[in-house]
Design a protein around this nucleic acid. Sequence first.
DNA 1: GTTTATTCGATTGTCCGACAATATTATCGG
DNA 2: CCGATAATATTGTCGGACAATCGAATAAAC
Lengths: 231, 231
Amino acid sequence: MEDTDSRSTVETVADALTEAVRTGRLVPGQRLTENEFTNRLGVSRSSVREAFRRLTADGLLMAEPHRGVMVRQLSRVEVDNLFQVRGALEALAVTLALPALHQAPSTLVALQRDLDAAVEQGDMNRFSQLNGRFHRLFRDTADNALLSDTLTRLSNSLYWLQFRVLVDRSDVFDTNRQHREVTECVVANDEGGARAAMLRHVENARKLIQSLPDDHFARPQPRKDRSRITD
Amino acid sequence: MEDTDSRSTVETVADALTEAVRTGRLVPGQRLTENEFTNRLGVSRSSVREAFRRLTADGLLMAEPHRGVMVRQLSRVEVDNLFQVRGALEALAVTLALPALHQAPSTLVALQRDLDAAVEQGDMNRFSQLNGRFHRLFRDTADNALLSDTLTRLSNSLYWLQFRVLVDRSDVFDTNRQHREVTECVVANDEGGARAAMLRHVENARKLIQSLPDDHFARPQPRKDRSRITD
DNA sequence: GTTTATTCGATTGTCCGACAATATTATCGG
DNA sequence: CCGATAATATTGTCGGACAATCGAATAAAC
C-alpha cells in the first residue's frame, strides 16, 4: 500500500497515529512504545520518536520522561482549565472577526441555515461537522495565525473523546440556539452580545463533556513543572 | 567545566542555547546548524536535534523543513497577533486570580511597593525583573496550568528582544501607573476595572515594542500551514 | 501472609556512523 | 551582470549499539 511518498516519513507516521487516535484504535491513556511502531510501520526509531514529539506538541499525545508517550487524556480539572482558556480565545476571535463578518455575513448566515437544517433533521454527524466549521469560520476570519494555532491545539487536546461523546437531540438543540444567538448578534453588529453568547456556548460544551462518566477522564495528574526560563 | 550531569543531555544543550539567546550571543534570525553545536558542546547530533525541537516548541527558536532552525524573531504583524492573544489571556488571569488576591492582597501590595521604589530610584533592571514577577503572580494565582504554560510560551516568543529593548524613565513611569491601577482595582475587588487596566498595560507594552526600528523585526513571513487535522 | 529488597527484562535516552534528499553556494558560459 | 549547472553543505532517515531508568516478577525478611 506504499506508493508515492510526497510527504516526509515522520509526517506519514504522524498522520497514521492521528488517524488511529481519531478512530479510537488507540485508547486514551494507552501507552505507546517506540518499537511497536517501528515494526508496524517499517520506519526507523528516529522517525517514530520525532512523530511522537510532534503530536505531543500538538496536544494529541502526552509524554513523560523515561516512560514514553500515551494517548492524551485530560482530567476533569484540566478540562475545566482548557475551557476557561478556550472561552477567552473564542471571545477574542469573535471580537476580531466581527467587522469582517458583519460586513459580509453571507457565509455565516448560510452556515447557520445549514446548522438549523441539520438540527431539524436530527443529523448529529452533520451537525458536529458544521459546528466545527462554525468555529473555524470565526478564527479564520479573525486573521491571527497565533490565535488560530492556539485554538487548534486546544481542540486537539480533546481529540481523544472525539467520537465518544454522543450528543442527543436536546443537547444539539441547546447548542444550536447559542449558535443562532451568536450569528444574530454578529448580523446586528453587537460585539458584547456576540462575545457573551459565544462564552455561553463554550460553557455549554464544557458542561456536556463534564457530564460524561468518570472513566472517560484521566486521574488527577502529578504536577509537571519544566519551566526552563526562570527569572 | 563539566562536572556533574544531574540534568539530561538535551536539557543541558537546551539550557546552553537558551542562555545564548538571552544574552544575545545568538542573534535573532541567525541560522543554527546541527554540526556547529555537536562540535562545540561535544554531544551527539540526536541530542542537538532534540534540543532544537524542544526550544522550537517553547517558542524560542523557529524551524523550517530542510532549512534547520533559527533564533526566533517575529514580524510586526506577529507581534500584534501575539499581544492580542496575550491581552485576552492576561485578562483571564486577572479574572481567575482576583478572588484569591483580593482576599489576601499582602503579596501584591508588597510587590507594588517594590515596583514603586524601583521606579523612584530609576533602577530599570530591577523594575523589569519585578514586572515579570507581577505578571507571574497573577498567572500563578489563577491556578490554571494551561493558561500559565500558554502565557509562558508567549513570553518566550519575545525572548530575542529581551535585552534589546531599552526603556527610559518616562516609559517606566507610564507602565507602573498601569500596574498601580491594576493593583488598586484588585484591592477594591473591581474585576472589570482590573481587566481593563491590565489590557491597557498589555497594549502599552505592545506599543513600546512596536516603536523599535524596523531592523529588530523579521520580514513578513510566508504562510506555514501544517494543520494535520482537517475536517 | 504481607511487606520489603533484589533481580531482571523492557523501554527510553544517547551515541555513532552512514547515506539519500534537499538546499545553498560556487562555477562557468552567455 | 545574469542565468544555468555543478559542487558543497545541511538536513532527513536509517540501523545498530550501549547505558540509564523504569516496571514487574521474584526472592527474602518480618
